[in-house]
């Protein structure tokens, strides 16, 4: 196989990827072949050292997240097949996709309802505190000193608790924002991969703990 044959075939096999990624991949292998030829290999030897275009395409597609990879693999076999599967399979994959979105949304809402509960408790204490102070004002109007003191005490105590709970709610919200960001990342991972965080240096520890 010549260099150009190899690169063209690779381009065909990767046609499911964006054009710039295909070009970049072809450039990488063109460089590798040129470097091997500079090192004294013949063109055929250098091309053979790359592996078959099929293997090379497979290795490139392996890096994609699950869903685009499955689409790319099917499309590679035949575009018609992909469309046929998409249409024939629509009674299956559309409800599945909807269910997936619904579950993702439900988990997201559940996470935030927790934070909302704490905020509501804080608001309730705040409200009770204000009413207590209002009672104290009433007490002043009727001139009943013990009632004024008791109401003011209740009011300030409630406001104090509200402030404490509010601070807790704030911290909890920040934590939940972090959690929900993590969850969102997990939810989209079959479709879109944040490659930077996916690859782990400590991979060799994984089989030992698995």
């Amino acid at each position: 196989m010549t260099r150009d044959e190899f690169l063209n075939r690779l381009g065909e096999l990767l046609a499911c990827l964006p054009a710039d990624q295909v070009k970049e991949t072809q450039e990488f292998y063109a460089e590798a072949i040129a470097d091997r030829m500079e090192d004294g290999m013949t063109e055929a030897e250098a091309v053979a050292a790359m592996g078959t275009p099929g293997e090379v395409a497979e290795a490139t597609l392996d890096e994609l997240p699950a869903v685009p990879r499955a689409i790319a693999r099917t499309k590679r076999k035949s575009t018609a097949l992909l469309w046929a599967l998409a249409i024939v399979g629509s009674p299956v994959w559309i409800p599945l996709l909807l269910a997936f979105v619904a579950v993702a949304a439900a988990v997201y809402i559940c996470i935030w309802v927790l934070a909302l509960c704490v905020w509501i408790v804080a608001a309730a204490f705040g409200g009770a505190g204000l009413v207590g102070l209002l009672f104290a004002v009433d007490g002043i109007i009727i001139g009943h000193v013990p009632y004024v003191l008791a109401s003011m005490g209740m009011g300030f105590a409630s406001i104090g608790v509200a402030l404490l709970t509010g601070a807790g709610a704030w911290t909890a919200s920040k934590q939940i924002a972090r959690l929900s960001a993590l969850w969102a990342k997990k939810a989209v991972s079959p479709f879109w991969k944040d490659q930077g965080n996916k690859s782990r240096m400590g991979a060799e520890a994984a089989p030992l703990t698995a």
Binding site: G51, E55, V56, A59, E63, N197
Partner: peptide
């Protein structure tokens, strides 16, 4: 560069271009 890396990495790893390319992309992205 690509070919130099393939030559430099210990042979027991059996590194080839088709393994190296996705790996370089991943490391670059990270």
């Amino acid at each position: 560069y690509g070919y130099q890396i393939v030559k430099d990495v210990p042979a027991s790893m059996g590194l080839t271009e088709s393994t190296l390319y996705p790996l370089l992309k991943r490391l670059e992205k990270a």
